[in-house]
Amino acid sequence: MRTGLTILTAISLLYVACPAQADPISVVGINILQSQQERDAIATSRGFTCGDNTYPSFDETKVQIHECLKDQAVIRFMSDSIIFSCSVFNRCNATMRKVAEEIVTTGILPTVHLEFNGPSRDFPSGAITFCEEGTDGDVLCGEPTPDGNLRLLELKMGNIGKPRGFN
Rank of each mutant, 00 (worst) to 15 (best):
G137S: 06
F84T: 04
F48W: 06
H113Y: 10
C131K: 12
V99E: 05
P124A: 09
F89G: 09
C86M: 03
A127I: 05
V104Y: 01
A100T: 10
I128A: 04
D136H: 03
F48V: 02
P56Q: 07
I42L: 06
F89W: 10
D52A: 12
G118E: 13
S125V: 09
D59A: 10
S79F: 11
A73G: 02
S45N: 13
D147A: 13
R91W: 14
R97N: 14
H113K: 15
F58Y: 12
G118L: 07
E133K: 14
G107V: 01
C141Q: 05
A73W: 01
Q64N: 14
L140T: 03
Q34S: 06
V99D: 00
P110F: 00
C92R: 08
G118S: 14
E132D: 11
M96D: 04
T49I: 12
P146W: 08
F77N: 08
G134K: 01
S79I: 11
P124L: 08
G137D: 04
E133V: 13
R91I: 10
D71E: 15
G137E: 03
V63P: 02
D52M: 11
I128T: 15
G137A: 07
F58M: 12
N31C: 05
I103V: 15
S85T: 15
C50E: 05
G134V: 06
T54C: 07
T129F: 12
D59N: 15
Q72K: 15
V104W: 01
E143I: 13
L114Y: 09
L140I: 12
G47M: 08
Q34D: 03
S45D: 13
D122Q: 13
I108S: 00
E101S: 15
T49C: 04
L69T: 14
N149Y: 09
Y55D: 06
D122K: 13
E133C: 00
